[in-house]
Design a protein around this nucleic acid. Sequence first.
DNA 1: GTGGCTGCTTGATCAGAATCAAGAAATATT
DNA 2: AATATTTCTTGATTCTGATCAAGCAGCCAC
Lengths: 186, 186
Amino acid sequence: MQANALDTIGTFNAADKALFEKEVKIRHVDKGEVLLREGMVANSLFFNVNGAAFQYSLSPSGAENITGLYMANEWFYNPSSLAAQTPSHSFIAAYVDSIVLELSIQSIHTLIYKSAAFFQFNSLIAQPTTGAYFFDNTLTPIQKYAYILEHRPALLQVFPLKMIAAYLKITPETLSRVREKLARAD
Amino acid sequence: MQANALDTIGTFNAADKALFEKEVKIRHVDKGEVLLREGMVANSLFFNVNGAAFQYSLSPSGAENITGLYMANEWFYNPSSLAAQTPSHSFIAAYVDSIVLELSIQSIHTLIYKSAAFFQFNSLIAQPTTGAYFFDNTLTPIQKYAYILEHRPALLQVFPLKMIAAYLKITPETLSRVREKLARAD
DNA sequence: GTGGCTGCTTGATCAGAATCAAGAAATATT
DNA sequence: AATATTTCTTGATTCTGATCAAGCAGCCAC
């Protein structure tokens, strides 16, 4: 299962994969378990082997602001906290019981030291996590939902529409109407 | 002038600065000159010594979509093209005659090889360029403009309001009304 | 089962920003 | 200097999505 995680990043040979398996930790996390807490400095990347996880921040009013929804075979982490080593503004938690891989920064440094192939992690760390920044304010609610249907339909099997709506920065009412409209159009 | 560029990234000793000065190229660019063209793979970071630059992409309809405005003493580049070594979707051009420093990826690798201090460039590359991602769709036009007034007022001295509006993803009419409203409030 | 909670839908209203339109001011060109 | 072009402002209208409100369905606990 660890090989999957590497395959999503680039090409690695058998020796690299063996090095990786020695560094990575396999964690069984319970529904609701927190992997990164607001105020902590992110020290690891995570890879979702199976299950589901989500990232969110709390607004002053206490509302959950969802910034990421993660399915199987996706890496997830807080890029800004990790890269700049500053306290996280967000939480990352498992949404259902999950198996995740955890790879610390120290491990990445060790891996890069042992094999140049692991430089490929730089481009992973440099990129915003899955889909999160696709949703700038130029997209309409229909386009946002169409993007989910097109690229990440599995989200709809796992997360309630309420959370999808929060992730897309639209209200549940608007999402409901968008779905009705698209269903009618088919 | 090269030292300024390093100071914005972290702490470097005299030997590091000397190494840096040997790698960096000083370029005099004319108004309108293109530093990165759509379709090319970004190979350099730029630092604006003086002048002004901007980043933009062309939508299918041909409209200019401004994604970055850069002033003196700011680094600018295309993070996604640079990190992933994929073709750029955007252009970077000088807005006025400018002096910029250019630092290639190869130079960064050379510098890192010669001094561990240059690892600090990783966190620069990993971060979205100045202010660009502050404008997610949770901010109102007033908040967006207030952010500019607070953090980057110099933009207003150099770029026409039309471009500021495009950068903020609002119409020029809305920007004009926001300015009128804030001026009245003072 | 009944009651209560949560998630989802549907309707009515409201507000904010885009669009459409015109004119004024500033800048560039000749 | 005169004209042309671009930028900025102001007004009227429209439209999209948020908000407010109510009702329904599914699910859990008791």
